[in-house]
Amino acid sequence: MERLNSERFREVIQSDKLVVVDFYADWCMPCRYISPILEKLSKEYNGEVEFYKLNVDENQDVAFEYGIASIPTVLFFRNGKVVGGFIGAMPESAVRAEIEKALGA
């Protein structure tokens, strides 16, 4: 999964595909739990859904703009708008269900 900076983040969320952004920090243990799940799903959705990571410590402007107060926060974007997401580490089945719900929106 590509790691984003603030500028690249603003570009990728404009996609008309579903874009999944994992807001994380290197020191965050729940973030380390969910990262391999998102990696796996990025391979399964192979281009149908785009997956990215954004380090909140390195991109505090974006974290502030989207009100990220807890990590991991995973937000789903389409055409620059938030269309779903979740906060906290969840099992793969729950993450997949959230993605499927956003795909249907």
Rank of each mutant, 00 (worst) to 15 (best):
W27L: 07
I13S: 08
V95N: 15
I99D: 08
P72N: 09
V12G: 14
D26G: 07
V83W: 08
S93Q: 15
R3Y: 13
P30G: 07
Y45C: 03
G84P: 09
I68H: 07
S15M: 07
G67M: 00
Y66S: 02
A63E: 01
L18Y: 09
V49N: 12
Y33G: 10
K43T: 02
L103S: 10
K43D: 13
N59Q: 03
S35D: 13
L4H: 06
G104H: 04
D26F: 02
E58W: 01
R8D: 06
E100I: 00
C28N: 11
E100R: 09
G84L: 09
F23G: 03
K17N: 14
F86D: 11
S6K: 12
L18H: 14
F51T: 02
L103V: 02
I71V: 11
S35G: 15
E7I: 00
E65W: 00
T73R: 05
E50A: 09
K81Q: 15
R32D: 14
G47P: 10
A97M: 06
R96N: 00
Y33M: 13
V83T: 09
K81V: 05
C28E: 04
T73M: 07
R78K: 15
P36Y: 11
G104L: 15
E50L: 15
T73D: 01
P36E: 08
F86M: 04
W27Q: 04
E11G: 03
S6F: 01
I99T: 06
